[in-house]
């Protein structure tokens, strides 16, 4: 019981910490990591409740739910990263996100994607080239 509560409680603390970081920090990658931490916290809780004492085998259902949840989290993370990279590629800063671009019939004004080498230094990115 107490070990179970410690593990699940740690999950709840992770959830709260992730939430705090998500809401307070501006940088998108920090937000993304934060939301993954919060998600990890929720998965912790699921793992904790699968425990049914030292003798009985654990409940497989929460385990399966966590597996499903992880895949969902991975998918969402991938999409957020792709959107983020696309946003970085767009040159001009938006004065206001509410302002629609002038013409729907004109072709997209997105500039060609920058090569990785042009990326501003210091921005963490999963595809930072090596070698």
């Amino acid at each position: 019981m107490s070990a179970q509560f410690l593990y699940g409680g740690a999950g709840i603390l992770l959830f709260a910490l992730g939430l705090w970081s998500l809401l307070v920090h501006e940088a998108l990658l920090r937000k993304l990591i934060a939301i993954n931490i919060a998600g990890g916290g929720v998965f912790h809780v699921f793992i904790a409740i699968a425990y049914r004492g030292d003798t009985a085998p654990p409940d497989p259902v929460p385990h399966a739910l966590v597996l499903t949840g992880i895949v969902v989290a991975v998918s969402a993370t991938a999409l957020v990263l792709a959107l983020h990279r696309r946003l970085e590629q767009a040159e001009e800063p938006a004065a206001d996100a509410e302002v629609l671009s002038e013409s729907a019939s004109a072709s997209s004004a997105a500039p060609p994607p920058r090569t990785p080498a042009e990326r501003t230094p210091g921005t963490p990115h999963p595809e930072t080239p090596h070698g």
Partner: peptide
């Protein structure tokens, strides 16, 4: 659930594809 989870994975990939072509690869190791 698992079937839909595969659909979620696919939706994410389709979203990535819709954002444009892939960036250039990396130099040969």
């Amino acid at each position: 659930d698992t079937l839909l989870e595969l659909a979620v994975l696919l939706a994410a990939l389709l979203g990535i594809w819709s954002l444009g072509p892939a960036p250039a690869g990396y130099q040969r190791s």
